[in-house]
Design a protein around this nucleic acid. Structure first.
Lengths: 226, 226
DNA sequence: GGAATGCTTCGCTGGTCATCGAAGCATTTT
DNA sequence: AAAATGCTTCGATGACCAGCGAAGCATTCC
């Protein structure tokens, strides 16, 4: 269909993302797991014939990868960069409401995950909300700064103490449509939580799990989560 | 054309980015400045009539904003989120070679700018290259860490000293197509440089300017730039 | 005032694409 | 061996869209 070294530019990328069926398929793969073609057809609400045509295009454009198992073909996103690009677009494209229950893998993904290097998902949003409510953050210099009270709390939590704490920025969360804490401060705190085993990375994708230690410690921050 | 509260999803976004003419126009606005419709027509190599139709769609999709000045209409990107999304797509879409000289505004943009919160552009790439060459970084734990030598150098440079320095990640630079230093370490170092006036933000967009102090200090890191 | 400029709207044309049903192919089950 | 399953290919249809020239509408220049 194309030369071996496919010439691929933004417009071809956009072309692939310009169809609602293809987008539905891709979004359903955002959690990082695989799905067979028939399931993707069902998700996109098209016949197997149509789904097959779409998947062929997505393969040619290297947005997805496929693995053959018996008579099934399992598809997954070609890499995290595809998820990144989708996320960047979803952030500023108000979502169409889909009245369909989330499947388990996607549910885990929406609970808690990393976005670039900071905490996102329901937990990420809850964390930022708690920080604001407890006045541990203040707005300053084009972003968030830890308040004196916030610094005390972070030190009490056992985070590494800094002479000057980095600043944070609100980062719009595409599954929650509210902000979580991003920027250097968000990255730093998330790294600290991972190091102290408040959070654990899950095997696949960017989802993370809140440990029991993490649940207790985050409760000290006023986070009510699960 | 559409209901006042436009229902806008990823597919409509993709649809707008699926045409080479529209993408060319948008990319030419990535530096954050404005261009009149005629100039955008010339850039996209289409007649004014066609360009007008494209710009109408981009306006309806809120990808660009327009300002009327006399008989001219000046267009610019609707916000940094549009640039973010384009960048995320460009990163993984090998660019079509365009044999056209860069205009000055875009040139400034490719020299040095911020990407999320870290340094990008030619300067960003040169910085990472220098750090690697001087062995100030080592690879560890799924990313870059400062080497002992690197820590000494950073402290000598007057950066705030940390008990545990954050880790960095390579971040592919879409204008240079090489990596610059991203991740928490990249954010932190860039913030330090801005605070110490090695870099200054330019008035518009994300471009930054290397100050004379910055040029001297970065030379100490082995960066040969300009 | 009249001419030139910058841009838009209109009508048309050619090309491309999503979609489906039917048929085909491979694998697995019975 | 035969039937069922999962997916692809083929051919046809209907819709949409980029592109242009011509005409129209402002604004500015002379």
């Amino acid at each position: 269909m194309d030369a071996p070294n496919t010439r691929f530019d933004i417009a071809s990328f956009g072309e692939l993302l310009s169809d609602p069926s293809r987008v539905a398929m891709l979004l359903s793969l955002m959690h990082g797991l695989t799905r067979p073609a028939s399931e993707l057809a069902e998700i996109a609400q098209v016949t197997p014939a149509t789904a097959s045509a779409h998947l062929k295009k997505l393969l040619a454009g290297k947005l997805v990868r496929v693995e053959q198992l018996g008579r099934h073909r399992y598809f997954k996103l070609a890499g995290p960069h595809i998820a990144d690009a989708l996320e960047a677009m979803a952030l500023h494209a108000p979502q169409r409401k889909i009245a369909r229950p989330l499947d388990p893998a996607r549910q885990i993904f929406t609970e808690a995950r990393t976005c670039y290097q900071h905490l996102a998902g329901k937990l990420g949003v809850a964390f930022l909300t708690a920080l604001e409510k407890q006045k541990l953050l203040r707005v300053g210099g084009g972003g968030y700064e830890l308040s004196p009270k916030g610094i005390v709390r972070c030190e009490a939590a056992g985070f590494e103490s800094l002479k000057k704490w980095p600043s944070g920025k609100p980062c719009l969360d595409w599954t929650e449509r509210q902000s979580h804490l991003g920027g250097p401060l968000g990255s730093f705190l998330t790294q600290q939580m991972l190091e102290r085993k408040w959070l654990e990375r899950r095997r696949e994708g960017r989802a993370v799990r809140l440990t029991s230690v993490g649940r207790r410690r985050l409760a000290d921050f006023g986070v009510a989560f699960l």
